[in-house]
Design a protein around this nucleic acid. Structure first.
Lengths: 143, 143
DNA sequence: TTTTTTTAAGACAAAAAATTCCGATATTAG
DNA sequence: CTAATATCGGAATTTTTTGTCTTAAAAAAA
């Protein structure tokens, strides 16, 4: 079985999306976030830590501490979260795992896949948390 | 890090593609195939076994035994190989890992992703080994 | 028939990814 | 200051995926 993004990355996206629908500046604990997205707390906590390192969210220790967005939702693109966790490997490695796959020495899928890869990258690079606000809110409320 | 297809699936695609450029009916040993695609022999062997189960390739035991395509290259679609190894999970699970993601209760990426998912599926369902013959040959020869 | 070569099958081992645990440190309330 | 609550950082554990080994069975050649 196979996945586009790692589990870590999925939970990162879910966590940050959740933070993005809370009133601006809200500090939410890892415990609350993990409950909301129904994922193991310690694991979510670890993921959130790596997101603070790249300045997508910020953290506050101690009582009433937790995590909050480090910038405005319209400044955070989906691709930022993805590359922070999974790297940009997804978008520049060969789909079929062939060595040395490039425009000059393409694998059998290369050309046909290039278009899809480009479109995905485009989609993830243009959409910000702000763009997804309404639909995120609706989804989170239904979980 | 993350990948679209599992390693198994990548090697399955490479192996079958390799078989498809050999003269019709050629029987190639797991040993030769693994050397060609530079992958561990026993592992490739395992993968080839599962492909024989779904009738994409056929096997022959004993001296001069090995594997060969079970049908004409234009009868074998890429998607057949992928679902045989990775299942159809890739194309009907939520990109963000949200539970119960559907058209009625979509995740934030759902709609935008649907188009890409559909196009990928389309591409993998319409292309057969025969369609990729020339480019496969060129690639394999350069490995 | 015996030997050699190759797949089949399943147990086993190693590596990677996911998940948990724990001790340290920071922050705030009382 | 002390107690309570959080994050932080790193080690430890579990699970999944990848890869190996070993033995059996089939096929062809000697």
């Amino acid at each position: 079985m196979t996945v586009l993004f790692s589990k870590k990355c999925e939970l990162a996206l879910q966590s940050v999306l959740y933070l993005s629908i809370l009133p601006k500046g809200t500090i939410e604990s890892a415990d609350n976030i993990s409950k909301q997205i129904k994922a193991p707390r310690e694991f979510v906590s670890k993921i959130l830590q790596s997101l603070t390192d790249v300045d997508i969210i910020k953290s506050k220790k101690g009582k009433f501490g937790g995590f909050s967005l480090a910038k405005d939702p319209k400044e955070i693109k989906l691709i930022d979260i993805i590359t922070a966790i999974d790297g940009d490997y997804v978008f520049d490695s060969c789909v079929m795992g062939f060595p040395g796959c490039s425009d000059e020495n393409p694998c059998p899928m290369h050309e046909k896949w290039a278009k899809l890869r480009e479109e995905s990258l485009q989609m993830l690079s243009t959409n910000t948390l702000a763009d997804l606000y309404e639909i995120t809110k609706r989804k989170i409320e239904k979980i």
